[in-house]
Amino acid sequence: MGIALSVNLNKIALIRNSREGNYPDLIEHARACVNHGANGITVHPRPDQRHVRPGDVLQLAELLKPLPEIEFNVEGNPFAAQRGDYPGLTSLAEATLPDQCTLVPDTDHQLTSDHGFDLTQTADKLLPVIEKLKSLKIRVSLFMDPIPEQIELAKQLGADRIELYTGPYAAAWNSSDPKTLENLYQQHRQAALLASELGLGVNAGHDLNLDNLPRFSTIPGLKEVSIGHALIVDAITLGLAEAVKAYKAILEATTRIQKTR
């Protein structure tokens, strides 16, 4: 299999939550993404429930249960406090048994994730979480910056994969500083090579889009990209089916090229 595309549905939920009712229907959009070629569905429930809610996670788990070829990835901060009917990430994972749980160090005041874990500070707290999830047969991925020492710690903690935080790479793509962009690409490339050498799978995500994904998808050992905001924005003009197909086409082209080398 080539590089998997997991579609993050948070923005669909955000639009729905701006009005009463269930429009747009998150579950039907997940079904459409799968029907049009997505390899997985990602959601990031938060205590403030500004987009995906706990009930959505339960419904998505039921939708995807009969589809073992489609990965269900639930991400979030395992240390975020319970609030209202938000039971906490670990409890949600235990109730839904997703294929993968991506642990992310975001906080309530952040609009979106903007850094990876500093495992020199959080390893002791993360270890029991990782062990719990793995006991449930859930693959564990840690959201990480491309820092070699941190990736080595991720391996020591027992993570199965890392998800490289690509925000700075995406920001540099739109700048007029090609040297910074190249340096960031090489940092991610070296981080991916190290992770693969250590036996860690490599995922990536954050602000990847149709412009910057072709280059980033050449990162060696890349198994999966999680894309939400840009894909949903593209769906406004292209339609959801064509947006999914456009991202898949990039990943499939990269896979074909790599196979010929």
Rank of each mutant, 00 (worst) to 15 (best):
E152S: 09
L126R: 02
L142Q: 07
S141N: 00
T120H: 07
I138E: 13
M144V: 03
I147D: 13
E152A: 12
Q156L: 04
I151Q: 02
K155Y: 08
L119N: 02
R139N: 08
K132Y: 14
L157E: 07
I138P: 08
Q156D: 13
D118F: 03
A154Y: 05
L119H: 01
K137G: 09
T120F: 02
S141Q: 03
F117N: 02
Q156I: 01
K155C: 00
F117S: 02
T122R: 12
V129H: 09
K125N: 08
D118C: 08
L153H: 01
R139A: 13
M144C: 09
K137Y: 12
L153I: 04
V129A: 13
R139Q: 10
L136G: 05
Q121L: 15
A123C: 12
E149S: 15
Q150C: 07
L127F: 12
T120Y: 00
D145N: 13
E149L: 00
P128M: 12
T120A: 14
A154L: 02
L157A: 02
P146C: 14
P146Q: 08
T120K: 11
L126N: 11
T122E: 13
V129T: 13
E152M: 10
D118Y: 02
K134E: 14
P148S: 11
K132E: 15
T122Y: 14
E131V: 03
I130D: 14
D145F: 04
I130H: 07
G158M: 00
K155W: 06
S135P: 12
E152N: 04
G158Y: 00
P146M: 06
V129Y: 10
K155H: 01
F143H: 05
L157S: 03
L119Y: 01
Q156K: 04
